[in-house]
Design a protein around this nucleic acid. Structure first.
Ligand SMILES: NC(=O)c1ccc[n+]([C@@H]2O[C@H](COP(=O)([O-])OP(=O)(O)OC[C@H]3O[C@@H](n4cnc5c(N)ncnc54)[C@H](O)[C@@H]3O)[C@@H](O)[C@H]2O)c1
Ligand SMILES: NC(=O)c1ccc[n+]([C@@H]2O[C@H](COP(=O)([O-])OP(=O)(O)OC[C@H]3O[C@@H](n4cnc5c(N)ncnc54)[C@H](O)[C@@H]3O)[C@@H](O)[C@H]2O)c1
Lengths: 203, 203
DNA sequence: CATTAGATGTGAAAAATATAACTATAAAAA
DNA sequence: TTTTTATAGTTATATTTTTCACATCTAATG
């Protein structure tokens, strides 16, 4: 699944370059995945290629759209319009992925005065907006201390998927999907790997 | 390794709450990992607990610091002081993780006028700064089209670890550590999982 | 038209990872 | 002091994931 998203990223790049067909090993090389793995993944999803000419790029992309976008474009919200929240709200390319940010929320009145394409609402309007747009998924971009509280609030309004940028482990019931994006960890793991490779060959 | 970072996150939370000892199953419950797995991971890193009283939180944390920070604090740079680049530059808590952002770079003169704790330099000064601060790891936060070019430039200056926020697959040699952080994918995978769980029980 | 080269597709083997079951041990209780 | 008990540590088992090997097919070629 992580790999399918990778393949698609690579395929979109290739498509932009005008490439029409790919072989499993081409795509593998692009994404750092073995050719067999690529084929296995495709066979998992019943994606068929041409046994001499590889796979058609446009066909693969649309197959992947099918996997992810059965439901069409999804409305989501962001809670916390600080640094991260604003970065995400300003990002233009989500819509290409059928990710539709309909609103952001912040407790701070000064943030509520922000004028931008994507509105900033007070926390009081959260339930109303969630209902109106049929929102199921939310992004938490509030300070660490506020994350659990905001999370509980969101769940109360029927949200069942959360992307959480706060480095705290949220307590939720089994059936809620949580994706913790910990940017410190992402950086730190690279630092760690770099220091490892340097030590492997000490001379 | 991903799990070790998770454990540490949870342990830091517990420590902040004044908790002194944890059992494998406590930590497991916190992080959504089985107790056996926790013990196995610890035994992997030769971390010892007390066979009746569990593990000491402070000991575990310092063991983990040992794993990650053998080298002490690491100087890193950010290329691209746009939305994401600025968010990261403004984030105060990296220093607690011994991640030390020493500089940011941007091609846009208006960005170079930003006044903040962390300076914004022109691209010309990159080599100088990398050398001066012994930087090994860099964050790429430039537009998609510029990412590969910036990447090549960084590698030319001796960088060997990259955290890449652009949704492009960078071409680099084997020995370079790349961590692609694709925020669209992070969001999309949650949307996908949510839609799956909704379909599992159609009635 | 038959042949061949170069792909895919897939079942089996291998490797990695996670789970379970068991043993050893330290602390608390009797 | 001995017994009990709860938990770490470890070995064995199961599961999942990846890789390998090869049969299969398609398009080009002579
Ligand atoms: N900025 C980064 O680079 C970065 C890196 C790693 C982790 N994080 C994490 O991401 C989260 C957000 O970081 P940030 O830098 O955007 O912080 P920020 O301070 O810039 O933004 C937080 C926003 O949340 C709002 N807020 C506070 N309490 C709230 C509440 N109860 N309800 C609604 N809104 C509330 C604030 O008004 C503010 O606008 C934090 O948990 C942080 O630890 C950020
Ligand atoms: N903002 C988001 O939420 C978000 C989400 C997903 C992915 N991304 C990706 O992250 C990257 C950065 O996004 P952003 O929103 O911060 O973009 P941005 O446009 O806000 O910032 C990019 C910065 O890079 C600078 N820049 C452009 N070319 C450069 C070059 N050759 N060398 C140095 N600097 C250069 C620009 O001047 C600008 O300041 C993009 O690849 C984007 O696709 C961003």
């Amino acid at each position: 699944m992580r790999r399918i998203l990778l393949y698609r990223g690579s395929l979109l790049q290739l498509q932009a370059l005008g490439v029409k067909r790919v072989y499993s090993y081409t795509l593998g090389k692009e994404t750092g995945i073995s050719a067999q793995q690529v084929r296995k993944d495709f066979s998992e999803y019943k994606i068929k290629g041409n046994q001499r000419g590889g796979y058609r790029v446009d066909e693969l992309i649309s197959e992947m759209e099918n996997i992810f976008y059965k439901k069409g474009s999804q409305n989501i919200i962001i809670v916390g319009r600080g640094n991260i929240g604003s970065s995400l709200a300003n990002y233009d390319n989500f819509i290409q992925r059928q990710i539709n940010i309909v609103a952001t929320f912040d407790i701070d009145p000064s943030k509520q005065r922000i004028r931008s394409e994507i509105p900033v609402y007070t926390m009081e309007r959260m339930e109303e907006i969630i209902d109106r747009f049929g929102v199921r998924t939310a992004i938490i971009a509030v300070p660490d201390m506020a994350a659990q509280k905001v999370c509980d609030q969101l769940l109360g309004y029927g949200i069942n998927g959360i992307i959480n940028f706060a480095p705290v482990i949220l307590k939720v019931s089994e059936d809620i999907i949580i994706n913790n994006v910990n940017l410190s960890d992402e950086i730190e793991s690279v630092i760690y790997c770099v220091s490892l490779t340097e030590n492997e060959c000490p001379e």
